[in-house]
Simulated assay, not measured.
Amino acid sequence: MRIRPLAALSVAAMSALLLAGCSGSAEPDASPTPSSSSASDCGLDPQPGADSDAITISGAAPELTAQVPADLEFADLQRTVAVDGDGDDLAIGQLVSGQYLVIDPSTGEVLLDSATTTPDDSGLIPIIVDGNSIFGSSVLCTPLGSATAFTIPGSMLGEGAANAVVVAQSVGELPTVATGADQEPVAGMPEVELDDDGTPAITIPDQDPPTEVQIADLKLGDGATVESGDTVFVQYSGVKWSDGSEFDSSWSRGAPSQFETTGVVQGFQQALEGQTVGSQVLVVIPPAFGYGEGEINDQDLKGETLVFVVDILGVQRAAAAE
């Protein structure tokens, strides 16, 4: 797909593009799977330079502002820590609250202010600390509380993309497991046991799989409610009903994942929307609500009844349409 110039991008498209960063699409594939983490502990490891040093950051999250000179060169990827936080250095796999601005350097216009996509009155949104996406890299290997200026050549974002500036600040560390109140298990549903770190082990009952989507709350949180089109921040494990084997897991990759509720299969979407942050959800998805009917094989998930355990860690509203 051809990437349109920065000024022509909607705020939603711009956010998706920067979330993908240099590692490809932010959309989930056959299952909600992000790109693997960089081998480097500091991911893209951007260094400060004349461009990023020239950006002036004012205020503090959720009221960040920035002044961007019109004559930046964008010769390479640069990041300057404009405000040093007093927390520990952030590492791949953490989840933090914060704010970011996406700025068109040709005009100084703020194309996206994450404070406008918060699900509550905090003005903050979750940020997964990682080495692949632009937002995750903006805070990676900086002390918690730091504010950074990130200058990104358009050539790193895709064909036809313009240069971009991202200003971001981390605020607080968020849990990477569901923290809601335990709920009674539902008879006939798969059994779930949690390891000490929260990783779920799923046991399939000795019976035929259901023909309709089944959803049960294992923990009930009291945070914001997930709405259709939101981006959710989750930990999850998925296994096949047919043999109990795991086919996908954020736990196995060592970091939470994020995706839009409308970017996953129907059964998974049903399990997310209407839930609250802090909840842990068990969902059984028959093929008709997953990847379709067909002969079960080892190459894809067609014909499989899928079982997911999902910890809902945070939510971000969709950006307002232009």
Rank of each mutant, 00 (worst) to 15 (best):
E273L: 02
L9P: 00
I204V: 15
M14P: 00
V213T: 14
T142S: 13
F259I: 00
E273R: 02
G238P: 01
D206G: 03
D53P: 08
S31C: 12
Q207E: 14
C141N: 15
G145H: 03
S38V: 04
E295H: 12
I55P: 06
L140S: 07
E212G: 07
A39R: 12
V102P: 01
E295C: 08
S133M: 04
S155W: 07
T80K: 06
P69H: 12
R4E: 12
G59R: 12
G98M: 09
A66Y: 10
S23V: 09
C42S: 11
G136Y: 11
Y291L: 14
A271G: 02
E73C: 06
S122Q: 03
L101M: 09
S133Y: 08
V110I: 15
T211W: 05
A7E: 14
A181S: 15
A161R: 00
T33E: 10
D182I: 04
G158A: 01
T151I: 07
G154M: 06
D51L: 09
A115R: 15
P119G: 05
Y236Q: 07
G85H: 02
E173F: 00
A54C: 07
I215F: 02
P69V: 12
Q266M: 10
A75R: 13
E184N: 06
F135S: 13
T116H: 13
E246A: 13
D208W: 01
I3W: 01
P286G: 03
S237M: 08
